[in-house]
Amino acid sequence: MLAVAGDRRRENRRTGIDPADETRRHTVADQAQTYNGYCVKCKEKRDFEGRVEVSKTGMNMAKGKCPVCGTTVNRILGKAKV
């Protein structure tokens, strides 16, 4: 357990991510907007309503549900400005 925690701290130090920082996965936009993304379950591009969130790697992502099957659909929008 200690080796895993030490490795995680070492990895976070390399990537510049603070493990105590809970704000990195926050929602950027409060209102849902319409985006176009690929649904893996339907195997088609679909328009979905989603919110912009920041991933743990620092990318802006639109995240929402497929209107047909309900699977989570993601679309990467670009690097987040911090």
Rank of each mutant, 00 (worst) to 15 (best):
M1V: 09
M1Y: 10
M1E: 11
M1N: 12
A3V: 12
A3P: 10
A5W: 07
A5K: 11
A5S: 14
D7L: 15
R8H: 13
R9H: 14
R10F: 09
R10M: 12
N12D: 10
R13I: 14
R13N: 14
R14Q: 12
R14H: 10
R14K: 14
T15I: 11
T15G: 11
G16S: 01
I17T: 14
P19R: 02
D21V: 05
E22P: 10
T23S: 15
T23L: 12
R24M: 08
R24K: 12
H26M: 15
T27I: 15
T27D: 12
T27A: 13
T27C: 13
V28S: 07
V28H: 07
D30F: 08
Q31P: 03
Q31G: 06
A32E: 10
Q33S: 10
T34C: 05
T34G: 03
T34S: 07
N36L: 08
C39G: 05
C39P: 05
V40Y: 07
V40Q: 13
C42G: 02
C42E: 05
K43R: 07
K45D: 09
K45H: 09
R46G: 04
D47V: 05
D47K: 05
F48A: 00
E49G: 09
E49C: 06
G50R: 01
G50M: 01
R51D: 08
V52P: 01
V52E: 00
K56L: 14
K56V: 13
K56E: 15
K56N: 15
K56C: 14
T57R: 13
T57P: 04
G58S: 02
N60R: 14
N60E: 10
M61V: 15
M61W: 07
A62G: 00
A62E: 00
K63I: 09
K63S: 12
K63E: 06
G64P: 00
K65D: 06
K65R: 04
K65Q: 08
P67K: 01
P67Q: 01
P67S: 02
V68A: 13
V68R: 11
V68D: 15
C69G: 03
G70R: 01
G70M: 00
G70P: 05
T71C: 06
T71A: 07
V73N: 00
V73D: 02
R75W: 04
I76V: 12
L77H: 00
L77W: 01
L77E: 01
G78W: 00
A80K: 04
A80N: 04
K81P: 11
